[in-house]
Amino acid sequence: MSAVAVMIRISILAALICCTATLAAAADDLYRAQTVVTGRGEANRTVGFAACLADVLVKVSGAVKLADDPRLAAYQSRAGDFVKAYSYHDQMSGTPIRDEQGTRDRPYDLIVDFDERKIDDVLKALGVAPWLSHRPLLAVLVEMGLGATHYIVTADAGLSAVAPRQSLLASSARRGMPIVLPDAAALAKSGIDGAGFAKLPPAALAARATELGGEVALVGRLKWDDSDLAWAAEWQMQWQGRPHRWQLRGVTFDEVFRRAIGDAAQIISDNGDPA
């Protein structure tokens, strides 16, 4: 390897150190989940507890397939029994209440901490084990195509890619999988751009993504489908020498990213291939 190539690789890794340190924390608080509720009344809180319970069971186990398991309903109906603590964050904090219904109608983040032992017992009853071992850092390399426009989602995304970046980070936190995204300078130095993304073979993409600091490369291509008015996505990841490929169609990019991060967790946690 030439001295120039060595310097380029070092520059790429250095540029991502701060991003890696921030995103690696996504797997913390495995037994915590949050959802949005309207007001702080008991009825909406009960609904929020049920939603958070489903997320925590998936998050702790890595088994995204649990989200569609009909057995969850019985546990969700008494989700409050598994709650250790909860709190609210007012999404409109600083905005004055303008009428007598203001408190009731305001959106809140309901943040729920679950009892670790009780959650582990539920997973055992469902035939799934808690995934408490090391969770590898995913280097996520995603190209999005909207008509003639193609771009890669980066850690320092411009206006066109801010929402996808935030969605990926939210999916990382929700599924308890730490991720790292490349920055624009690192991509430029590695010779990857939106226009040339599709021309690179899968092996080259995986190798480049891993060089960006992750332990496992998750590579995705999203294309907007005008006929479905939704995104079509193709994902690939290699884990323990075995390639995995899967597709999603007819969904929002929020759902695409949530499913992709969850599917990667399911593969790595040895809970099976994506559905």
Rank of each mutant, 00 (worst) to 15 (best):
V6S: 15
I8L: 12
I10Y: 04
I12W: 01
A14E: 12
A15H: 13
T22V: 13
Y31L: 10
T35P: 11
G39I: 02
V47T: 13
A51L: 06
L53Q: 02
L53A: 14
L53T: 09
A54D: 15
V58A: 12
V58P: 04
V58C: 15
A63G: 10
L72I: 12
L72Y: 12
Y75F: 15
Q76D: 10
V83R: 09
Y86H: 12
H89V: 12
H89E: 11
Q91M: 15
Q91F: 10
M92W: 11
D99I: 04
D109P: 00
D109M: 11
L110T: 00
L110A: 03
D113G: 03
E116R: 13
L123Y: 06
G127N: 03
A139G: 11
E143A: 10
G145S: 04
L146P: 00
G158P: 04
L159H: 13
L169H: 03
A173P: 06
R174F: 02
R175S: 06
L187H: 08
S190M: 15
A195M: 03
A195V: 08
P201L: 07
V219M: 02
G220W: 04
D225F: 11
D226I: 04
D228R: 11
L229Q: 15
L229I: 09
E234F: 08
M237N: 03
Q240I: 01
Q240C: 09
R245H: 06
G250R: 00
G250A: 02
F253V: 00
R258H: 08
G262M: 01
G262R: 00
Q266R: 11
I267R: 05
D270W: 09
D273A: 14
P274N: 02
